[in-house]
């Protein structure tokens, strides 16, 4: 039996193609990219060994720090909002809408499947101030508030980016967390209700602790995705105004392809990878501790 299940030729035929493509196009380039971090140049003009100059540049580069700052601020704010709003919606689905929730769930989920570029162009028009007044500014005007140039100031741009990604992703996190909430046994909720726990008290003392695992895994998925934000920013603000909304991903892209500096670009990419790793390990560790406690 084990002979058939462990046949070397079968393993090679089934696993070979995937492993080959994956190695050549993911693993080799990752190592290759590490090599670039100690070089200067690009494939057209050639490369020169420069040691750890790129890392020294990175840590003394104000634009790099600004990019790290934006990436962290964006990732943390959006992660908290995504999971919080998603959780609110999931509670709404499970405890208030009940039978009607299927249709609402499906409708709130749909922006996830839309191309980011299309949504970004639409949001540019929705929040436009001039030459035409977009719906959002028109709504403000009707309350007697002057139009806001949403893409003109760093703060407003930041919140538009957040708002757009929240619009796209809240339905997704709602469904993800909903799946965790419906797994809570009804007998448990019923007995808590008989003990007099209702509304907020029921949520806080029964539902929240029981859905902690799915909440924490949502946090991991969210932070891992938001640290890599690229499409939204490129299409909505292109990093502007100035470079106020430029995350590490976009800074890496500009450094490499606009300025042709592959060495420094690889260094920025490596820093981004390390950042993702740190956050995953950090959240994973705190999750593990909490789970063993509970």
């Amino acid at each position: 039996m084990d002979k058939a299940l462990g046949d070397k030729r079968t393993i090679l035929i089934l696993l070979g193609p995937a492993l080959l493509v994956y190695s050549l196009i993911m693993l080799v380039p990752i190592v290759w990219s590490l090599g670039y971090t100690v070089m200067d140049g690009n494939p057209i003009i050639g490369f020169q060994f420069t040691g750890f100059d790129n890392f020294a540049t990175f840590f003394s580069d104000p634009a790099a720090w600004e990019a790290i700052g934006f990436t962290l601020k964006y990732a943390l704010v959006l992660t908290v909002l995504q999971v919080a709003v998603g959780y609110g919606l999931a509670l709404l689905y499970v405890f208030w809408l009940r039978k009607a929730s299927s249709l609402i769930r499906t409708i709130v989920f749909f922006p996830v499947v839309l191309p980011t570029v299309a949504v970004a162009l639409l949001f540019q028009r929705l929040f436009e101030a001039a030459p035409t007044t977009g719906p959002v500014n028109a709504l403000l005007n009707s309350f007697g508030i002057a139009s806001v140039d949403w893409f003109g100031t760093p703060d407003a741009s930041f919140w538009i980016v957040i708002l757009m990604d929240l619009w796209r992703s809240m339905g997704f996190y709602a469904v993800l967390l909903y799946a965790g909430l419906v797994d809570i046994p009804d007998e448990l909720l019923e007995s808590a209700r008989l003990d007099g726990a209702h509304g907020w008290k029921l949520v806080r003392s029964i539902v929240l602790p029981l859905s902690l695992p799915v909440l924490l895994s949502s946090l991991i998925f969210s932070i891992n995705g938001t640290l890599k934000v690229f499409d939204t920013v490129v299409a909505l603000t292109n990093g502007g105004p100035g470079n106020a909304t430029t995350p590490l991903t976009l800074y890496m892209f500009q450094t490499s392809f606009t300025y042709g500096d592959y060495g420094y670009g690889s260094t920025i990419a490596l820093m981004l990878t390390i950042l993702c790793l740190l956050f995953t390990v950090f959240i994973f560790r705190s999750t593990r501790r909490d789970l063993t406690k509970g």
């Binding site: 299940l5 046949d7 380039p29 990752i30 990419a269 490596l270």
Partner: peptide, 28 residues
């Protein structure tokens, strides 16, 4: 299938989910 090393190979594939695409763009 049952063979030695399938655990590490699965982990190797899993690692690819987390690594940002920016890491492979330039060599590619």
């Amino acid at each position: 299938l049952v063979w030695k090393g399938r655990g590490p190979v699965l982990l190797l594939f899993l690692a690819g989910i987390m690594v940002p695409a920016q890491m492979i763009l330039l060599p590619l």
